[in-house]
């Protein structure tokens, strides 16, 4: 299983719907086991539903600070980021996870923080990929998305996260079938595969087949399964 050797700031970006938000939440929870001072910032100014903010209770319980637009998951569709996002840059004692919005449009919002991140140079910028998403089915189109994001935010990725999955229907075979795809992206970009994210029930089996498996729980709950109001 994956041994976290984190930089001070870890950024997750990728095609929207690649699973960034859920991985970011799981990663922050993993970090909290090693460090006292952990925060997660939701920079998504595009997606109105299924946000980091939906995991607020889990994060609060773990003692992880959530930096998120106060309008997220509300009825206000306002692409505003809170001023406290700058705390990530100003507080060197903090370990931070940044959930960047999907695609180039989402990544645009990261731009204003990039000069400081580059200057400090203690970050991992991770490209989350899912082979089962229709616009990133093949290596060529995945690399297109990657280039668009890099151009939009002015920051280069330095590793890949393979999060290939079919939601609740994901099988071991589905994940195994994504290894070649992930390897080809790695080969074409020269970037290492930092981890393969796998839903917990399947993680042990996948860990026997490949290295650096990151077991994740699904924290983004489907609304028709909610017993009570959030």
């Amino acid at each position: 299983m994956l041994n976290l050797t984190p930089k001070r700031v870890t950024l997750f970006s990728g095609h929207y719907g690649s699973g960034k938000t859920n991985i970011a939440v799981n990663y922050a929870l993993g970090l909290k086991k090693q460090f006292d001072n952990v925060c997660i910032a939701d920079l998504d100014i595009v997606n109105p539903y299924f946000r980091t903010k939906d995991s607020e209770k889990v994060l609060n319980r773990a003692g992880i600070k959530l930096i998120s637009s106060e309008y997220a998951s509300s009825n206000v569709d306002l692409p505003a980021l809170p001023a406290e996002t700058y705390a990530i840059l100003d507080n060197p004692a903090l370990h931070a996870v940044i959930d960047v919005g999907g695609d180039d449009r989402g990544a645009l919002a990261l731009g204003r923080y990039v000069p400081s991140l580059l200057k400090e140079n203690d970050y991992d910028m991770l490209f989350v990929v899912n082979r089962f998403r229709p616009l990133t089915r093949d290596v060529k189109s995945t690399l297109e998305v990657m280039n668009e994001i890099e151009s939009a935010c002015g920051m280069k990725f330095n590793a890949i996260v393979n999060n290939s999955n079919l939601g609740e229907e994901t099988t071991v075979e589905n994940i195994v079938s994504s290894f070649k795809y992930a390897d080809e992206i790695s080969g074409a970009t020269g970037l290492p595969i930092k981890m393969t994210a796998v839903n917990e029930p399947l993680a042990a089996e996948i860990a026997q087949i490949t290295e650096n498996v990151f077991p994740i729980k699904l924290y983004v709950m489907q609304s028709w399964k909610l017993q009570e109001d959030r």
Binding site: G17, N130, F132, R133, P134, L135, R137, N165, L166, G167, E169
Partner: peptide
């Protein structure tokens, strides 16, 4: 054919 993971809006557009 293999299934894909799609958002409702995208699935509708592709259909």
């Amino acid at each position: 054919a293999e299934k894909v993971l799609m958002k409702g809006n995208e699935a509708l557009a592709e259909a």
